[in-house]
Design a protein around this nucleic acid. Structure first.
Length: 93
DNA sequence: CATGAGCGC
C-alpha cells in the first residue's frame, strides 16, 4: 500500500470528500486529514492510503486538478518520524 | 468570525 500526500486542500474539504475523490480513480484504503492541534485549524492537507497501482493512478489523475476551488496537490507521502510507536529496529512495518 | 505553507502524534 502506498501513502499519498494531498496538499493545497480547501478548508471545506473533509476526509469523506477526499476519499470520494480518490475513490473515483481507485480503491481508497484510508484517508487522514491533518489539522493543526496547536490552533485547531485545519492545515489544508492530508494523507490518502491506497494500493500502489491505484495510488499512482489517482496521484497522476488528481495532481494538478482543481478541487473545491483549489489546485490539488498529490504526491507520495514521506515516512513519518516516530509516530504512535517507537520505530527503532531493522524490522520496520 | 479567520488562514494557505506544503508531509500526519
Amino acid at each position: 500500500m502506498t501513502k499519498l500526500y494531498v496538499g493545497n486542500l480547501p478548508f471545506s474539504a473533509t476526509d469523506e470528500s477526499v476519499r470520494a475523490l480518490f475513490s473515483n480513480h481507485g480503491t481508497v484504503e484510508k484517508v487522514s486529514l491533518i489539522n493543526d492541534r496547536d490552533t485547531g485549524r485545519p492545515r489544508g492537507f492530508g494523507f490518502v492510503e491506497m494500493s500502489s497501482a491505484d495510488a499512482a493512478r489517482a496521484m497522476a489523475a488528481l495532481n494538478g486538478t482543481d478541487f473545491e476551488g483549489r489546485t490539488l496537490r498529490v504526491n507520495e507521502a514521506q515516512e513519518r518520524s516516530g509516530g504512535g510507536g517507537f520505530r527503532s529496529g531493522p524490522r520496520g512495518r
